[in-house]
Design a protein around this nucleic acid. Structure first.
Length: 270
DNA sequence: GACAACCTGACC
DNA sequence: GGTCAGGTTGTC
């Protein structure tokens, strides 16, 4: 599913529902390449109390009372879903977590790219150490400086690089560039300091606006109640190749840049 | 940088 | 049959 606004929406819901609760039971339906842990996983989590659910970049951190953690990445199609007792698992469900008070949480993942893994508090710190600053927390100056250091790459590639700035993905990279009036194919070293500042300003704004809408359900993102976000209705270029630009009416172009589908307006973005 | 890989499904 | 999909990682 997810970029920062979607993962943060899920984090808040998870925290509200399971913080303070103990994992009583785990059923594993599908393991997969990223989860060879198999037998070790269940005893590593069952009986442990969750202090809360945190987020760093697109990673969910299920923090146990002793500061060890279960790290979760949804990749493209991962979902957490709270379900009733009579819920029947589907073919894409990977695990069921049963918490205190009959709270039942499904982890499903159609494409099986995601992972859950248990780490110590040090292990969590190490696993998350390489990420760039959180765009909703860092200052504009900090964020602009991060872009400057990435030199001659395409700006689109730099925005997608989690070690430069954490949490931006394909949707918000395209939307930020449109709002800033910058073509995705420009190289970072060719941007003026004014453009870098404008771009990170729009990164912050678009992420905050999407978060306020509980994220974007452009493909199959849903929250832990199975509900869609609302920001797909406010996208200006992502997924709109061939359609008219909302500003100038000329067709939005779709190209491949940084190996990802990339959408921009030839006329509004220089 | 580009590219393949990890996987499944939807759509043309 | 081919192409595409909110991600990441490891190869040339």
């Amino acid at each position: 599913m997810p970029e920062l606004p979607e993962v943060e929406t899920v984090r808040r819901q998870l925290h509200d529902r399971i913080a303070g609760k103990t994992i009583r039971e785990v059923l594993v339906f599908k393991t997969g390449r990223e989860m060879p842990i198999g037998k070790k996983f269940i005893p590593a989590v069952v009986g442990r109390r969750l202090k809360g659910v945190e987020r760093r970049a697109k990673v969910l951190i299920f923090r146990f009372a002793d500061d060890d953690a279960m790290l979760g990445h949804l990749k493209m199609t991962g979902k957490f879903l709270f379900v009733d007792e009579d819920y029947v698992p589907t073919k894409h469900d990977r695990m069921l977590f049963v918490f205190d008070g009959k709270t039942r949480m499904i982890w499903s993942d159609i494409r099986m790219f995601g992972y859950l893994k248990v780490v110590t508090s040090d292990g969590a710190r190490e696993a998350l150490a390489h990420y760039g600053p959180e765009p909703l927390e860092a200052t504009l100056e900090e964020l602009a400086e991060r872009l400057k250091s990435t030199s001659r790459r395409l700006i689109k590639a730099a925005l997608l690089d989690q070690t430069v700035i954490a949490g931006i993905g394909n949707i918000y990279a395209d939307e930020s560039l449109f709002r800033a009036g910058i073509r995705p194919t420009r190289t970072v070293d060719k941007l003026t300091s004014d453009e870098r500042l404008r771009l990170v300003t729009e990164v912050k704004k678009v992420l905050a606006e999407s978060l306020a809408q509980n994220g974007t359900s452009a493909n199959d993102y849903i929250d832990t109640d199975g509900k869609k976000g609302g920001f797909q209705n406010l996208l200006k270029v992502y997924g709109r190749g061939g359609e008219a630009c909302v500003v100038c009416d000329r067709p939005i172009k779709r190209i491949v840049a940084a190996q990802r589908g990339t959408h921009y307006c030839v006329s509004c973005q220089k």
